[in-house]
Computed example of a mutant assay.
Amino acid sequence: MTAAAKPRFDDMPPATQAGILCNDPRFQTFAAVRCGYPGGQFIASAAAEYVRLICGVNSRRMLNINTAAAERFAALLTEFDAHTGKIARPQR
């Protein structure tokens, strides 16, 4: 597969994005800290449970069909991007 044929993360459906994100060690640490485990790191399944809890779904697949859940996931992704420095943090 060439780089041109590989889909961009931002073009993937939310459920696919969530699956990738939950396997990212940076997100696993982010989720653990957000759950009150500073210095800890979740495994992928715990990160997936965190996403389901925050988004209010029982399956990440629901992110593709539940608009409110998809919006909550987008907000979570924005918070993670700010946490990692991918985007600037909003001024308060």
Rank of each mutant, 00 (worst) to 15 (best):
T2F: 06
A3R: 08
A5N: 08
K6E: 05
K6Y: 02
P7V: 13
R8T: 02
P13M: 15
T16M: 15
A18G: 06
A18S: 07
G19E: 12
L21K: 06
C22F: 07
N23W: 05
D24F: 05
D24P: 06
P25N: 14
F27D: 00
F30D: 00
A32L: 00
V33I: 05
C35Q: 04
G36V: 06
G36I: 06
G36L: 05
Y37A: 14
Y37D: 11
P38V: 09
F42W: 07
I43L: 10
I43E: 08
A44V: 09
A44C: 10
A44H: 09
A46T: 07
A47F: 03
E49I: 12
Y50C: 01
V51E: 01
R52N: 15
L53Q: 15
I54L: 09
S59G: 11
L63Y: 01
N64P: 05
I65M: 09
N66R: 07
A68I: 02
A68R: 02
A69I: 11
A70G: 09
R72I: 14
R72W: 12
F73D: 06
A74D: 10
L77M: 13
T78R: 13
T78P: 01
F80Y: 03
F80I: 01
D81Y: 13
A82R: 00
G85E: 07
G85D: 07
A88C: 10
A88V: 04
A88Q: 11
R89T: 11
R89M: 12
P90S: 11
Q91T: 09
R92V: 10
